[in-house]
Design a protein around this nucleic acid. Sequence first.
DNA 1: CGTACTTTTGAATCGCATCAAATCTGGTGG
DNA 2: CCACCAGATTTGATGCGATTCAAAAGTACG
Lengths: 218, 218
Amino acid sequence: MDWQALSESQPELGLIPPQLRTQAERLEIKRGETLFRVNDLVQRVFSVVSGEVRLVRLDRNGTEIVLQRSCGGFFAEASLGNTRYHCDAVVSAAGTILQFPVDAFRSALDEKADFRSAWMAHLASEVRKLRAQCERLSLHRAADRIIHYIESEGADGIINLNQSRKAWASDLGLSHEALYRALSRLEANGVLQIDGNRISTISRSSANSASSNSQCRC
Amino acid sequence: MDWQALSESQPELGLIPPQLRTQAERLEIKRGETLFRVNDLVQRVFSVVSGEVRLVRLDRNGTEIVLQRSCGGFFAEASLGNTRYHCDAVVSAAGTILQFPVDAFRSALDEKADFRSAWMAHLASEVRKLRAQCERLSLHRAADRIIHYIESEGADGIINLNQSRKAWASDLGLSHEALYRALSRLEANGVLQIDGNRISTISRSSANSASSNSQCRC
DNA sequence: CGTACTTTTGAATCGCATCAAATCTGGTGG
DNA sequence: CCACCAGATTTGATGCGATTCAAAAGTACG
């Protein structure tokens, strides 16, 4: 398995120690397939390489509640601490995944101090990113979400998108039409400079500091 | 310090080992105060007991980008892995916080296997909750977010709210008016049963399974 | 060249935010 | 106990912005 190439697209795979790598299995997944179901014993840890996997829960009426859509990287990390799953994992777009035996994963975390701290750093970084994404999604205007994304995910107000605008729109919780329109409006208003996948904010001379008058969450 | 009472309102404080507890400091915080700034050295780890703290970043025009609003529990967990902060921490509602020396925190994680796995489980659980919240916030209709909340945070379609509806509305990324209206509409339509803070979904006999025709994120 | 997908623009509709105001609630002090 | 106040809860009216449906143009790839 080409861990070099894999780690470039999925940085968290770079954390995996050599011994654990040898126990990884590559798996082709087809749309509609189920990787695990509620109450199944946790026996593997999964990472999406390509395609999409959804964690879903069915309510009493059979309505699907999506808990997570994963297009890359580990998912259901909390399963490491549980014996059984609390949701189903369904493939929503064909692709490939990696799977590790959960016992080997757990003992690697126990024994390898390096891996352990790398894994904790990975989790903490996920938490940070997700918190920012929640704040972004709670903004109501498309333009605000775009600016928030650039300022929080980019560097110095500049970002290089590594995904299509349609996928970005989905990240931002917007329809792709809304994203396209907001982008061109922001460019027309001189707020953004757009050059293909390189998008940057333009600093206005009238820099008045933020008001910070918004309501508290609690 | 009354760790018993603290752990009841902030479960993650229950993880802290005795030795680390002795090094905790309680701190009263006032609105407008700054706990740390960008590029400050990471010297403490913080947990909100009451009030609200925001992690913010200022863009080139001085506009405030909110990365996180914390009304309880640890915040800026990623600072444990960094030497300097990447944002400011500003008090947006007066209250009290706990602070731990970061060195003591790190060595406790190194030395105490129990604390370490509890902390990893805490982080993984945060990741799970935040992913579900992101999915929830990417739903467009108020009713969908409410149902999603009940099904993902509650048990068996029943939830006991431990916060005001106004605070819940903020969690859901809705105005409180929109939440009130959606709740009474759902109750009138026989979808929800509302009894004070106990809210439950009602299973309809016409249980047709989910369609799962929604677009992929990628 | 054809196919599948993304990007782009248009028009109509829907749902939520916002502003406003009234009522209800719990807690404080006289 | 009651008056009072700060919040939370509730209802109404209005406007805006995003979704949705539709369709055309651009683009990558076999």
